[in-house]
Amino acid sequence: MSGADGVVLVDKTAGMTSHDVVARVRRLAGTRKVGHAGTLDPMATGLLLLGVNRATRLLTYLVGLDKTYRATVRLGQGTVTDDAEGEVTSAPGVRDVEEQALHDAVAGLTGAIEQVPSAVSAIKVDGRRSYARVRAGEEVELAARPVTVHAFEVLATRPATAADGTAVLDVDVEVVCSSGTYVRALARDLGAALGSAGHLTALRRTRVGAFDVAEAASLEAMADGVPMLDTSDVARRVLAARELTEAETAEVRYGRGLAPSGRDGVVAAFAPDGHVVALLTDRGDRARPVLVLDPA
């Protein structure tokens, strides 16, 4: 197993950090060379993509993929972390939220938006993680950044009473968004848009690009072996493909350029037998290798 290369689709359970998952897969796969393509918060469940051995070099091209989440937003309470992990900082409560008002608030958070990330996040402020500054008692104000929420759909609503007696409304949603979007921040901003407060009580990532959580396995199911997607399969799913001749394959394996692909961005180049040889990008009048996965 230690020599195998590939991408592992893990269905993460709640309570584990993404680093915990990486450490476990390192042991299960018998290799230190394991990395992930984007973290999940400890309270979140669902799809985490890991690269093993040479497939770690593909992770750069997986990090930026769009993602889909199922989540529950609790309207009526805000927390320091914008999710259920943090202490409640405001509890204005909600009584009745009209369906149209909820629809309008969700619509206002859909599309290309400027989002202020949650203060308790891994973003660095003057060299220190924002969450470390917040936990040290500092006030942290992060700058808004552009993100895209492709879809924000309300699936169900349920009136409830929080543990402190606050009247709240739990809203089940599905969010399709660009990489870098904080669903916790969407929960916070949805509450604010409705004149109250909001935080996330559940979060599950169901899709990353072309990869679905239905394909993933739990860590417990990997006790007898770690299932991996072949690097060629991953490259074909994520990138535009260019089929090479035997002569072109030989050139690319030595890091040499080819005639241009005529496409924007990075292209996966495949040998005649179907395995990925390199990733190419057009530079001027040549397609140049940016990563040779199968060198001579």
Rank of each mutant, 00 (worst) to 15 (best):
L169W: 00
A122S: 13
E98C: 11
E138T: 09
R263V: 02
A136R: 09
D282Q: 02
D5K: 01
A259V: 10
A4G: 10
R57D: 03
R188I: 12
A112P: 04
L155S: 11
L155G: 10
K12N: 03
P42T: 13
D233N: 02
S179E: 10
G274N: 06
L109A: 03
S196I: 08
S130N: 06
V168W: 01
T161G: 09
A269F: 03
A151G: 10
G180Q: 06
V213D: 05
R283C: 07
L200G: 05
D83K: 06
A14T: 13
A143I: 10
D104F: 02
G284V: 12
V183K: 00
V88L: 01
R288M: 14
A144E: 11
A271E: 06
K33L: 04
V267E: 02
V149R: 07
P260N: 14
S90W: 05
T79V: 11
H150C: 03
A193P: 03
V175N: 02
A259Q: 08
G76A: 08
T39S: 15
S196A: 15
H19R: 10
G108R: 14
E85C: 09
D212H: 13
T81Y: 03
T68L: 00
R263A: 10
S90P: 08
M1F: 08
A214W: 07
V140R: 11
L142E: 05
E153M: 06
L200S: 06
A216V: 05
V94C: 10
T56A: 04
V277L: 01
Q115M: 10
G78N: 07
G225H: 05
T110E: 12
R158K: 11
G78I: 06
S232R: 03
D164T: 09
R32F: 00
R263P: 02
P159L: 04
T17F: 08
A202H: 13
A214Q: 15
T181F: 07
H36G: 00
K33V: 00
L258Q: 06
L200E: 03
P227A: 13
R204E: 13
A210F: 07
M228G: 00
V213E: 10
T13D: 12
A107V: 05
R54G: 00
D41T: 05
G6L: 00
G76K: 02
L28T: 00
T245C: 15
A259T: 14
G127I: 12
L59D: 00
M43E: 07
R205H: 14
Y61D: 06
E174I: 05
A71R: 01
V7G: 01
M43F: 12
K12M: 10
P117Y: 03
R283P: 00
G209N: 12
A136D: 12
T281W: 02
T281M: 10
V125Q: 05
D230S: 08
V52Q: 02
V25N: 01
D20I: 02
G195M: 15
D83A: 04
A192F: 10
R57H: 08
T281P: 01
R205E: 11
